[in-house]
Design a protein around this nucleic acid. Sequence first.
DNA 1: GTCTATAGGCCGATAGAC
DNA 2: GTCTATCGGCCTATAGAC
Lengths: 223, 223
Amino acid sequence: MAQGTSRRARSENSKEQILQAALRLAVERGYEGTTMADVSAESGLPIGSVYWHFKNKEQLFVELLEHCHAEWLKIHSGPIAVRDKVTRGIAGQVREDPGGYSREEALLKVAMILALDKRLGGLGEDSEVRRTYIRIRSKMFEVNVRHLADSLPGDVVEAFPELPEKLAVLSLALTDGFYVHANSAIRIDFAEYADLAALALEGLVDRYVKLARERKSISTAAG
Amino acid sequence: MAQGTSRRARSENSKEQILQAALRLAVERGYEGTTMADVSAESGLPIGSVYWHFKNKEQLFVELLEHCHAEWLKIHSGPIAVRDKVTRGIAGQVREDPGGYSREEALLKVAMILALDKRLGGLGEDSEVRRTYIRIRSKMFEVNVRHLADSLPGDVVEAFPELPEKLAVLSLALTDGFYVHANSAIRIDFAEYADLAALALEGLVDRYVKLARERKSISTAAG
DNA sequence: GTCTATAGGCCGATAGAC
DNA sequence: GTCTATCGGCCTATAGAC
């Protein structure tokens, strides 16, 4: 560490190192599969330091989720088309980057793993890790709904206000589903399937667009 | 146990009890979350009996998977339409039956949990539980592809031989995706979404049907 | 703030009586 | 075949020197 590096800065650096190590391990091994000793070894810091920065294992994962969520929010701003939402999501879940995951992908991966890791923090449903995961997932979902709404034609959203939410659920389900598939060793061309999935959802949008236009022309003719 | 119950029959009965207990627990808690002591308690048999019937924890789960797969195969025979495949799959994954799961649903649930439970049997990728899961999932997938192929119009399958496989992947992804969603405490009307998902895939099929018919009329006109 | 050593608890697996 | 008692190993968390 160079001269002039404050104690405070070094401490923050250690904390960051621990979080990054925990992230790398959690993505590979899940919650139960990641031990505090592993985190200590991977970060290069002794286990005492880990417990100095984080009260316990549960708190480490709570902060890890919040850390990733903050990064995700930074990146995801502005509207996004259904097609991009689906293809980006699937691509992100599936990529096997040996050198580590981008922060955008990281939250989704960690979130997915924690979603299905039973017995988080020993008591399942009631653990703070789980509550944090649920809170963050619902925030991400709201953001997605808003961005999809912004990307759809205004008259369609007006006619079917629940459409953005429906699309968000479906695109999230597809993203999650392909993550599961990626963990099941049946090799497929994910890019091709991302296109296909996008096509399917776009077909749905087209249907609603037509419905909206029909309604409009009827009400215009009537009024 | 009544008179005339052979030692052999009682032994088989014990084994079945243990498997059922393991199934109930695994669905709720996953692999790591289910201890041999739990299985022993849930089955009502002492832990020594569990180890008499199964060499170790890994072997117990291997046989559990194979047991469920056999049941699944019994039920899933004959063609099935895309719509039914999707709606049935989603409904099965999501239902919260307090009294236990039907055997049809059980394999899918257990398979899903094991798919994402990292560090199965201590060594992740190389565990026998994982290999068994991979083998069974690929068998189930083949069966689904064949049944979907049987349910599609013959000329479409002829024109696009890869379509049944694509639909199987998408419908499986949707099923899996909604399972994840069901574990994330954002409450939605799954029946409605099952319809929507089916609609999206049917739209895809329609597109391919049209393409096949167009091709046919072109080649007929040309020939 | 950093690090080592270790306490304390839980789990998989076995030994051995019946 | 069934059951109990127990061992060894791993994991979280803490105590306490520096």
